[in-house]
Simulated assay, not measured.
Amino acid sequence: MSTLPTTAKPSARETAFTPFQLMLLSLMVVQNCAVVLLGRYSQAGVAAEDKFSVKTLVALTEAMKLFACVTLIGIDNIRELNPSRSDSYLPDMPLYRLITLMPSAVGTEISKILANPKNSMAVSPPAALYLFQNNILYLALENLSAPVFQVCYQSKLVTTAIVSVLLLNRKYEKIQWISLVLLGIGVSVVVLGEQDNSEGDGGPKDQNLTVGLIAVGLASLSSAFAGVYFEKVVKGKNSGSNGKPTSLWVRNVELAFFSLVFSFVFGIFSEMFATNSAGDLKSEVPAKPILHGFTATTYALIFLQAGGGLLVAAIVKYIDNVVKGLATGVAVVVSTTFSCLFLGTEVKYQFALGGITILASVWAFSNHEKVAKILRDR
């Protein structure tokens, strides 16, 4: 089965990234900024009774991702069975014929997945971790401003690098480890500055800095383990029932399926033990509609999150799970600028100092060979 166009790793004489990789990283910047800004906007200043259910949003996101991946699998199978001379991704055939062939093309691949359940179970651990991460991120956005959230979330670069060494035996240069240490210092500067600001002016009444920072820390850890584990599965030697390596889209179908299963189970248990504001079980409280609190912003978040999941999978496959930190680093600057312009966020000097340190660390980590050359030439 065909997948995304393969891109060879650049040699030392070539540019750092190929055009295809640059496109993926650029899309990652846009997606990161949009999700954080819209996520913060959807949580800030909204009464608790009017907020949407994060569990429902995450479940709908996974359902959309599942539908998109199943469609891509069907298109890939049709292209394989009906070779086309055109360079278009869609098969060279009328749309009605493509739609007619889609059920059988998808059914063929689904039957292969069901014939090898052990291979599919490999993605269940990262599915559970991604589900936890996606749920807790909104708790962080509820209690932190968009810039502070973005900056503190860069700590996942450190945890991802450490987990990559443990699970993938990846080697990093001395300059890269120094960059990670400086990144940690930068995050500490931002956090300490934000604590001083909160203690000085009391901070927004609807925000809890401690809860927000704990949520970011847990999201960083779950993101690191899930991302590296998924990278190991995608780039590993696991095969489908036909002996060929399992495609990227099949892995995403499996990931979305397990996420939906875990989301359903989590939703059942959370409703069983949920309480109202008085601390009583909510068994006697009328249930809200499943899409209560959903607005155009919420649906945009679902679309962006679903597309972002596919984008991360492509970056893991064709670039590097840690190098994508370069894109998120750029996203910090862009989202901070937009947050100041449209959300009224104030940027203090501690934040600026820590943010510059973090961005410089991310750049040095991703361009360690260039940094080493500059130091040698001095």
Rank of each mutant, 00 (worst) to 15 (best):
N82I: 06
E80K: 15
P126R: 08
M1S: 08
L37S: 00
R378Q: 12
S86V: 06
L192Y: 14
T295V: 01
C69N: 15
G267I: 05
Y41F: 11
I178P: 03
S335Q: 05
L22R: 14
Y41K: 08
I374T: 12
F266N: 14
T275R: 15
G329T: 02
V148T: 10
F351G: 09
A306I: 07
L37T: 00
R376S: 13
V316Q: 15
T328W: 01
D280T: 15
L180D: 10
R79P: 01
L255D: 05
T336A: 02
L72W: 11
N32M: 06
R13Y: 09
V334W: 01
A372N: 12
L291S: 04
G217I: 03
S223E: 12
I185M: 15
I358Y: 06
V265G: 02
P147F: 02
S223L: 06
A16W: 12
H292V: 03
V312C: 04
V181G: 07
G202R: 04
L38F: 13
K373Q: 12
F266H: 10
S111I: 03
A331C: 02
L57C: 06
P286H: 01
E369V: 09
L144N: 03
A12N: 08
K348C: 04
M28P: 00
N119Q: 13
A8S: 15
S188F: 14
P5G: 01
L221H: 02
A48F: 07
